[in-house]
Amino acid sequence: MSDRSATEPWAAKIAHDGPPMHQERARQTRQLIMGAAAHEFATNGFRNTSLQAVAKRAEITKGAIYHHFTNKENLAASVVEEHYALWPVLVSEAGAAGLPPLDTVIHLLDKVAVTFRDDPLVQASARLQIERATIGIPLPTPFVGWTQLLTDLLRGAAEAGQLRPGCAPEVAARVIVAAFFGVQHISDALHDREDIVERWQEVKDVLLPSLRA
């Protein structure tokens, strides 16, 4: 058997690996629906968004939405869950930069600010969290994960001598989370988040000197 004939079955296997075509189409349709829903929820909120409007934006039938999502509540919860799935990627990227712990916190939240400014999925999730009482099904609890993550990073900063003496990492984490998400909410209410990066820079200029050793 020639070398070529020996490798052909393996080459064919590589070419045909991956999900079946109908599964890939289903995945693409689901992502299309999520993107359209994110725009509608971010702009109009939960109560004023209809599945018909989502279908129109996605240029699909309303029945196609029901193939993937039970109802509007389920679609809203899926948008929020998809938003939370974005953060581990940003956290990993920030960690890969090799910065000291306190600088990792800053680098990470800088990226998060840009994501809030530019990503309709994140904007929709933020609005849905504010309107969580009207949705009627449980959503992930906001802020807790961020507070724990920043607490862990700031403990590392304290061990590295980056925090001023007497600065408790868990307290600093709560303050940073409150400041950051307060900024994003105010920026949203006043300027549709167009100035979030600048407003976050102002907070850093005032807050970080009080934390850094």
Rank of each mutant, 00 (worst) to 15 (best):
Thr61Gly: 12
Pro88Leu: 05
Cys167Met: 15
Phe46Asn: 02
Ile130Ser: 09
Phe69Tyr: 15
Gly45Tyr: 13
His22Asn: 06
Glu194Arg: 13
Pro88Arg: 09
Lys56Glu: 06
Pro19Ile: 14
Gln184Val: 05
Pro9Thr: 10
Val112Asp: 08
Pro169Tyr: 05
Asp192Pro: 03
His83Gln: 06
Asp205Gln: 08
Thr151Ser: 13
His83Leu: 02
Tyr84Asn: 02
Glu24Met: 13
Ala11Leu: 10
Ile186Met: 04
His83Arg: 07
Val171Phe: 12
Pro100Glu: 00
Val112Leu: 10
Arg155Asp: 07
Ala126Leu: 07
Pro101Gly: 02
Val114Asn: 10
Gly182Tyr: 14
Glu198Cys: 03
Phe69Ala: 02
Ile14Thr: 11
Lys56Tyr: 07
Phe41Glu: 05
Gly63Asp: 08
Pro100Tyr: 03
Arg127Ile: 10
Ala96Glu: 13
Leu153Thr: 06
Glu40Lys: 01
Ala37Cys: 03
Asp103Asn: 04
Gln52Gly: 08
Ala15Ser: 09
Arg164Pro: 12
Thr151Tyr: 11
Ala97Met: 09
Met21Lys: 14
Glu59Leu: 09
His22Gly: 02
Leu99Ala: 01
Ala178Ser: 15
Asn48Asp: 09
Glu40Pro: 00
Pro19Asp: 06
Pro120His: 10
Val175Glu: 10
Glu40Tyr: 04
Leu99His: 02
Phe181Trp: 15
Thr7Ala: 11
Ala173Pro: 09
Glu73Val: 04
Arg57Met: 03
Val203Ser: 01
His68Lys: 07
Val203Trp: 02
Ile106Gly: 01
Glu40Thr: 04
Ser78Arg: 14
Leu153Val: 09
Glu93Ala: 14
Lys13Pro: 04
Gln31Asn: 09
Phe180Ala: 11
His107Glu: 01
Asp103Leu: 00
Phe46Glu: 01
Gly45Ser: 09
Ser187Leu: 01
Ile196Gln: 01
Pro138Asn: 15
Val79Asp: 01
Asn44Cys: 11
Ile130His: 15
Pro209Ser: 03
Thr49Lys: 04
Ala168Arg: 15
Asn44Leu: 13
Leu208Ala: 02
Leu109Lys: 15
Pro142Asn: 00
Lys62Val: 04
Cys167Thr: 15
His16Gln: 13
Thr134Gly: 14
Gln31Glu: 13
Tyr66Ser: 07
Gly161Ala: 15
His191Gln: 03
Tyr84Ile: 06
Ala38Gln: 12
Glu8Phe: 05
Trp10Lys: 08
Asp195Leu: 03
Pro142Phe: 00
Thr151Trp: 13
Thr7Asp: 10
Phe143Ile: 05
Leu154Asn: 05
Gly145Arg: 00
Gly45Val: 09
Trp200Lys: 06
Phe46Met: 06
Pro101Ala: 00
Leu51Glu: 03
Leu86Ser: 06
Ala38Trp: 07
Glu81Ala: 12
Gln201Met: 01
Glu81Thr: 11
Pro120Phe: 03
His22Thr: 10
Asn74Tyr: 10
Lys111Trp: 12
Lys13His: 11
Arg212Tyr: 11
Gln162Ala: 14
Glu40Ile: 00
Pro169Leu: 08
